[in-house]
């Protein structure tokens, strides 16, 4: 039973996470060697119940890791729309970027996660942002041949103008 708070969060062990936090609430913001918090681990592995518990206990969703990874980008990359929505309701920056020039929208497109793309666009994701390698969300969808994503992006652009 010596799993770290990060492993417990990732493995969805919500009761054990609650017990650890009751003994040491500072674990909420404990960053591992790469700067990842328990909230980031839970978001990356789609553990919505743990995400809810950590936020309820006061975890800061705006913390970014060493390469500027965030709970939102990890949830977007993993395709966890329910976690994306709860994080956005907490006021995280929908356009947070990391050192790869990645944004939640670009990771959602890369993962072909249609519902995540829709949820991010609905909360103001910037469709013009490009990755370091110069790909916008649309260029990425076209290059990857993700037709549904392309359609969602086109419809969004039409709504904008």
């Amino acid at each position: 039973d010596s799993l770290s708070i990060h492993q417990l969060a990732a493995q969805g062990e919500v009761l054990q996470v609650a017990v650890r936090l009751s003994k040491d609430v500072s674990l909420l913001s404990k960053q591992d060697e790469r700067g990842f918090t328990p909230l980031m681990w839970a978001s990356a592995f789609g553990e919505k119940t743990v995400v809810d518990l950590l936020l309820e206990k006061g975890a800061d969703p705006k913390i970014v890791a060493r390469d500027r990874e965030s709970a939102l980008t990890l949830a977007s990359s993993g395709g966890y729309v329910d976690i994306i929505e709860v994080l956005l309701r907490r006021g995280v920056d929908v356009n947070v970027y990391d050192w790869n020039g990645g944004t939640p929208l670009l990771y959602a497109v890369r993962g072909n996660h249609v519902k995540c793309v829709e949820a991010l666009l609905a909360k103001g994701a910037d469709i013009t942002t490009e990755s370091d390698s110069g790909y916008s969300a649309m260029a990425l969808a076209v290059a990857l041949g993700y037709k549904k994503i392309q359609k969602v992006l086109e419809d969004h652009i039409l709504r904008l103008y």
Binding site: Q11, D32, E69, L74, S77, N100, Y107, A139
Partner: peptide
């Protein structure tokens, strides 16, 4: 009990395998 450990989360390279723009 056997402890199974999850690997640390990581983000993919967004444009891996795509031509440079």
């Amino acid at each position: 009990s056997h402890l199974s450990l999850y690997t640390s989360p990581s983000l993919p390279n967004i444009t891996l395998g795509l031509p440079a723009t």
